[in-house]
Design a protein around this nucleic acid. Structure first.
Lengths: 257, 257
DNA sequence: CCAATCAACCATACACCGTATGGTTGATCA
DNA sequence: TGATCAACCATACGGTGTATGGTTGATTGG
């Protein structure tokens, strides 16, 4: 229930070079840290999915025993929290002073790209203990929208909408059997085999598969920009309406005074 | 790799009443089925989250041993697939002939409501082996949009956008610490305690928390309708443009011929 | 210089998990 | 009456997270 793990020696204060041997050791095997453990966990997850991150595997990779890991880390959940914050830190945070629409566009694209690189992070996203990178990212986003004149409620609307969409899209994207190029590829034959069965029970699905999804040029990833543009247009409208009604109020005030 | 588990005696063909005792037994303990196991798994997950669904617990609840469960079910993944399809079967499928916009509106609301009732289903959603209920739902949705005159590409755009949003929103919603009434409630004090720390490092976040999220009337769930309406407006625009350009082509054709 | 401290690591053990393998029943039916 | 087979079971293996209670060996204050 302590609010922070007592990670102890967080910075590697060098052991004052007691002996040449000690120096050699410190040089070869870099010290174990929460940060290093988390970084390694991210690598493991990237390579083999989230279920291949275990305390035992992590410990082995760090050349210590499983229980020694608990000196640096509070629990496995602590590691998962750290992993998610690493992912957020890879996203481009909006720059203060940027034009809001391009800032949101780039934020969305960057988020999607990072989540595509670390698909396991999407399921971790439900986790409720944001790290500093996560909070900083949110803070910067709010800042840009506020600077553009958005009211707080509209900021809430816009961020809920954008974040829901991006996160949901990233999730859908991982569900589909995509090859590296982004189109359907290898899974096509499997699907074609089921085509006949589907045509009977699910004619619309079958037609959509045949005439759209399985077509050579189609790549699900391209759907992202359509939705994103549409959403930004809608937010832009809402923002304009908000500004106009405020202007109208001011004008009314002025003519009344 | 068999495409269906050999579920064997799926219907409970009654054992021709060999003895009164046998009849009593059949009456008291209803037969174990894949379907029953899946239903029970759903109940377990509703009560204690997805991690409280284990083969051993399930078996105990069914009054059999863990390994006996494998007679009715191929694997645990098989059960998870079944659970997801149960969830989809609880959603209102769009009625053929319905007006597209209200059909999509209701589909989105129904989906959100069902996912809120079974939060564990959101993480299962990434699973790639849709059951019949899932496929039927998709098929009906495509059908409604096609009937309204949507081109296949626009159907793809619309569904990607709507499904991403709804799923993403459902996910965000489970992340937040909500009480039954839907507003922030119990977690407020915890958050307030961190307020001061936040105000320094994350001023915009702190302001948003103070002036919007922690305000008495605020409930995150209300953000849903804003985004949904905005998205449907955007799709409606795209649809109108598509129809208009088609009309123009026809007119041009007619005047040319 | 020596004793105390303490960061860092370790061994053992427990209670879970999914499932491979290979039985054992008891009713049904040719 | 003997074979079949749906349904269930016992044992075991290799994994998981982590509670408990050591053991080191370098750093320090007295």
């Amino acid at each position: 229930m302590a609010e922070r793990p007592k990670t102890g020696g967080e910075m590697a204060r060098e052991p004052s070079e007691t002996a040449a041997a000690a120096a050699a050791v410190t040089a070869t095997r870099e010290p174990v840290t929460r940060e290093r453990a988390v970084r390694l966990a991210v690598e493991l997850a990237d390579a083999g999915g989230i279920e291949s991150v275990s305390m035992r595997k992590l410990a082995t990779e760090l050349s210590i025993t499983p229980m020694s890991l608990y000196y640096h880390v509070k629990s496995k959940d602590d590691i998962l929290d750290g992993m998610l914050d690493v992912v957020y830190s890879e996203m481009d945070a909006p720059q203060l002073g940027a034009e809001w629409r391009t800032a949101m566009l780039e934020r969305a694209r960057s988020t999607r790209a990072v989540l595509a690189r670390h698909p396991w992070a999407i399921s971790l996203d439900a986790r409720t203990s944001p790290g500093p990178a996560t909070l900083g990212h949110l803070d910067a986003t709010i800042g840009v929208l506020r600077a553009a004149g958005f009211s707080m409620p509209l900021v809430g609307h816009a961020m809920s909408l954008l974040d829901s969409y991006v996160q949901g899209f990233a999730m859908q994207e991982t569900t589909l059997p995509l090859d590296a190029s982004g189109d359907i590829g290898a899974a096509t034959e499997d699907i074609m085999a089921q085509q006949e069965m589907m045509s009977n029970a699910f004619p619309n699905l079958a037609e959509m598969a045949g005439t759209l999804i399985l077509q050579p040029g189609y790549a699900y990833g391209n759907e992202f920009e359509f939705g994103l543009g549409l959403i930004l247009d809608g937010i832009e409208n809402a923002h304009r309406e908000e500004v106009e009604s405020a202007d109208a109020a001011v004008t009314a005030d002025a003519s009344a005074g």
